[in-house]
Amino acid sequence: MNAAANKLEEQTLTDRQKAVLDTALQLLVEGGEKALTTSAIARAAGCSKESLYKWFGDRDGLLAAIVTRQASKVRTPAHSDEVVSKEQFVQELNHFAQDLLEVISGEVSLALNRLAIGQASKGDDALGRQLLEQGRGRIGEQMTQLMAQGAKLGFVKVPDAHAAYQILYGLVLKDIHVRLLLGATLKQEEADFKSAAGDAVSQFMQLFENCTK
């Protein structure tokens, strides 16, 4: 990835940059890959192509920024060591679970994943790698740290923090994402994301809660 994209990752996105990326995401939803050009993004966002290149660099840099922007909508604790009570720990798990359901079930994430799958079938795995590294990978790193903190403080008993995160991820999403990608609609109880998230976290805590503490 080029220097411009690397530089962007090291700083906080401005409101203007966030708006531009959200415009790009909407173009993708409405028009697919063909709509996702620098000219179209610049025109729809009311900025110049020069600004896009300055902020995001080449196409891979723009895709990385788009994926990072989408992944940022899933709340994860910036500093897991600030979670010092069991109540905080469970609250963070609930925030994560609810946000994950909302983001993954949204039109933007579905469009990104469908595009990545289509490109991968043609031998182009660039977007797929971005989704894994900049999206799920980053979220996974932060949540693994939270799991390790929870284990350290005795809130849960997990020999492997990353494996525990993966189990939570599975409990939250089940097969929802696959079904949505294939065109299915959510059942009424699944569409109540707050309730579904709470159920998943409760199931996770029942599996891993350290009752000796």
Rank of each mutant, 00 (worst) to 15 (best):
T185F: 00
R136A: 12
Q17R: 07
A40Q: 10
R69A: 11
K213G: 11
V178P: 00
M147T: 04
N2R: 12
D125R: 07
Y53N: 04
E190T: 02
S195N: 13
I41V: 15
A163D: 12
L110R: 13
L207V: 03
A64P: 00
G123N: 06
N113K: 13
G46N: 05
G140V: 07
L112C: 11
K157F: 08
R114A: 06
R179I: 08
E50W: 03
D125N: 10
L62C: 09
W55N: 06
L8S: 04
R43F: 07
L100C: 06
M143P: 00
A35K: 09
A4S: 15
E190C: 06
A4T: 08
G135Y: 00
E141S: 10
R16K: 10
G135C: 08
A126H: 10
E10M: 14
E87K: 14
D60R: 13
L180Q: 05
E87D: 13
E9F: 08
F204L: 04
L110F: 03
I117K: 11
A71H: 07
A19D: 12
A200K: 07
E33Q: 14
L93E: 08
K152C: 12
A35R: 04
G140M: 05
L13E: 00
Q142H: 12
R43L: 12
E141D: 13
D58F: 01
S195I: 04
F89V: 09
C47Q: 09
T14I: 08
A40C: 05
I104E: 12
G57Y: 02
A40P: 01
M205G: 02
T38V: 08
T23N: 07
A120G: 05
A148Y: 00
S85M: 01
I117A: 15
N94T: 14
N113P: 00
R69K: 12
K73I: 01
L181V: 10
K194P: 00
R179H: 07
K7W: 05
T76M: 07
V158W: 01
A197C: 08
A200C: 09
A161F: 03
V74Q: 02
M205S: 05
R138I: 03
M1V: 14
Y169G: 01
S80P: 15
R136P: 00
H162R: 15
A163G: 10
Q203N: 04
C211M: 12
V108I: 15
L180I: 13
N113V: 07
E141F: 09
K152N: 10
A191N: 11
S39C: 04
A44R: 10
Q26L: 11
L62P: 04
L146V: 11
L62Q: 01
A151P: 00
D22E: 15
Q149N: 14
M147N: 06
K213I: 12
F89D: 00
T14N: 02
S121R: 12
A65D: 06
V67W: 02
E133I: 14
L181G: 10
Y169T: 09
L21T: 06
Q142N: 11
I41T: 06
D60T: 09
G61W: 04
S39N: 03
I117L: 15
H95I: 00
H79K: 13
V201E: 02
T23P: 13
L52I: 06
L146K: 05
A45L: 04
L131I: 14
A196T: 12
L131H: 02
A65S: 10
I104W: 08
V156Y: 03
S195H: 07
